[in-house]
Design a protein around this nucleic acid. Sequence first.
DNA 1: ATAGCTCGCTACTAAATTGATAGCACATTA
DNA 2: TAATGTGCTATCAATTTAGTAGCGAGCTAT
Lengths: 121, 121
Amino acid sequence: MTKIPVPGQSVRGSKSGSPIMAMFDLLGRRWAMGVLWTLSEQGPLSFRGLQDACETISPGVLNSRIKELRAAGFVALGEDGYHVTALGSDVYEALLPLSKVSKVWAERLADLEKPHKAQTG
Amino acid sequence: MTKIPVPGQSVRGSKSGSPIMAMFDLLGRRWAMGVLWTLSEQGPLSFRGLQDACETISPGVLNSRIKELRAAGFVALGEDGYHVTALGSDVYEALLPLSKVSKVWAERLADLEKPHKAQTG
DNA sequence: ATAGCTCGCTACTAAATTGATAGCACATTA
DNA sequence: TAATGTGCTATCAATTTAGTAGCGAGCTAT
């Protein structure tokens, strides 16, 4: 299996394994944030339920991301399926500002697209 | 070149292109957050300066990430090199809580490693 | 003007990751 | 017994990333 980034050990962007770079290494993989987000908002979910909720994720990738998120302690498997841990919930909440910015971003792009004539400066 | 995710268009995790999923698609690529982070903290930087600051990124990947971040409007190239835009700075600030959590995460892991005898619980 | 520097960036190949699909072993239910 | 649902694994193609070399332009010193 692929190496799971851990703070304190060499990760992408930091040989000394700075926490934020380890976090980026972990979350900067396809679907990682999407899985955590989806599970936080819609969990607990079964493997297949999570797969469906993600719309287009393949089981192999989902399995990899789950393993990594579990190893990191962000996600756990309980009686009623996968769910985020307390720490995982903290990560989710840390992503909320990003959601806010993403909306600003979307609006800005929409503004650039709509008025093909003039522009507010 | 690889497709650049845009809110409103089909992206990983959302066929309708929800802003947060578009953001995850954009930032959930190898080095994307690391590049934005490094540039925010140490910028403006030249291409090679940014490459050095990232420690181990290859020019091909850096070039891809820069293209994507520029297309998204998070990064721009000025007289004195690459720098984050106002929007890019917003994204950076939205990542700050993640940095905080990453430290908690690192501490938790350190606590689990250190005491090989007993454990508080 | 020719050598040496840095600049942004491209080309090329190999390795790793991701995507897509099929299906396994187990448990539950009917 | 058969059908369904569970968490996954296997396989293979497609895409992405890594690693390294180097281009063409510009600037500087000789």
